[in-house]
Design a protein around this nucleic acid. Structure first.
Lengths: 234, 234
DNA sequence: ACAAAAGTGTTGAGAGTACACCCATGC
DNA sequence: GCATGGGTGTACTCTCAACACTTTTGT
């Protein structure tokens, strides 16, 4: 395809990098944005925490590989997941050239089956706002994942993906506030989220704690995920 | 990192996919959005057109590989380029497993040195709105690239990257109209682009064709590239 | 009855949109 | 002087942002 590497050259003969997927698994716990990390047992970066990931098998798609990693760590399938970015700087893994395709997943905490310790590997949820020492370039990947998640919250209805199937508007608002690290106005929030027509009332009410019971809402399966942005040019 | 593939396993022993970069090279020619393609001489897809690309060398970064491909095909360096998406469905290349990290570049046509035919490989500019038969999954990659470019135009000032160093507001407007496939209002366009404060007058005027000479503008090097989007939540 | 959280409207400011005519030059 | 493209302002609408009190329940 290029002058140096003719297109008829069989690509299987090339010196090839390793390819992995890493999955940034977000969840909301106790009004905090958490990410699931794995403690490394071996060098390099032994004892440090890392984003769950693994090698892409030779005959599986990238999405399948990412979904497999997610399921291995959390037992969860069928959640919101999207490709984040591909990181491939030489030297990011000191052992050999490793290119990683990073994904991020939004997991409702009540759907997580494997709790930390279930698996052989030690895993734990960490606050995104209080991270431990991280292996490789994983701090950079997490920073980028948070930026993308915040950005995405502002023009899509992706926030629901972190909550249970049914939820109250106050819970949804707290989710947005937690992720954006910012207080939102209750009346404006409700008006806007209802105007987007992505929610439907379930008819049920949540009566657990103190105070007036709250209406429970569900995400409308038929809703368009992407809310049209206001455009820069008419 | 996973149950099946222990983290202490040396990744260099794995059965590894090939990794390429493909660069979607956009330019504006005669008020049309063009993309540079290469004619394939060998199987698979012999005679079909393809996005320029090549293997990532074992010790170069992905960005370097993409910039190298761009320079080989156009002679251009230092233009706007960003990572688009990573495509890795098994079978997208019938020879072997190939994962490609796609980039897109915005190239002012007057900067292109290698014209079609300069190189050994046959290259040609095609209208994005009238594409030939394409090899591999390259039609899908181009469709995604166009979507991203259009999207990006709406909330950033990236349109300049397709024009010469100095340009008139009418030329800029025509660039936006061409890419978006949509007429824009002249007064609103001018008001908005000037309000963004990313342009500066050069003092020069363009007097070539008919009509009143137009002021020539330049992109302000110190301008912030990303224009703040209106947010969905306050 | 009181504590706690849910729920609800209005107003002012700023941005978006639609729309039509005069200006400077070359021929 | 006329054809050609460049350049300019205003009024209406709509969305955003700020702001405080009433309602429903459990104890």
């Amino acid at each position: 395809m290029t002058a140096e590497i003719p297109e008829n050259y069989d690509p299987s003969h090339y010196d090839r990098p390793s390819v992995t997927v890493d999955v940034v698994i977000f969840s909301l716990v106790d009004d905090d944005l958490k990410v699931l990390l794995i403690k490394r047992k071996f060098a390099p970066f032994a004892g440090m925490w890392a984003i769950p990931g693994g090698f892409v098998r030779i005959d599986e798609s990238l999405e399948t590989a990412a979904a497999r990693e997610l399921a291995e760590e959390t037992g969860v399938t069928d959640v919101y997941m999207e490709q984040l970015y591909t990181f491939g700087t030489p030297g990011r893994d000191p052992r050999t050239r490793v290119i990683t395709i990073a994904y991020f997943a939004l997991v409702p905490y009540d759907a997580v089956r494997h709790q930390p310790g279930d698996d052989a590997a030690e895993t734990s949820w960490f606050s995104m706002f209080d991270l431990p020492a991280l292996a490789f370039d994983h701090r950079e990947i997490l920073a980028y994942a948070l930026t993308r998640l915040r950005y995405k919250l502002e023009y899509t209805a992706v926030g629901f993906q972190l909550l249970p199937d049914i939820f109250t508007l106050s819970e949804l608002q707290r989710a947005y506030e937690t992720i954006l690290s910012e207080k939102l106005d209750k009346r404006n929030f409700r008006r806007k989220i209802l105007a987007a027509e992505v929610l439907e009332e379930t008819g049920k009410k949540k009566r657990d704690g103190e105070g007036r019971p709250a209406k429970l809402y569900a995400y409308r399966a038929d809703a368009v995920a992407e809310v049209k942005t206001r455009r820069l040019f008419p």
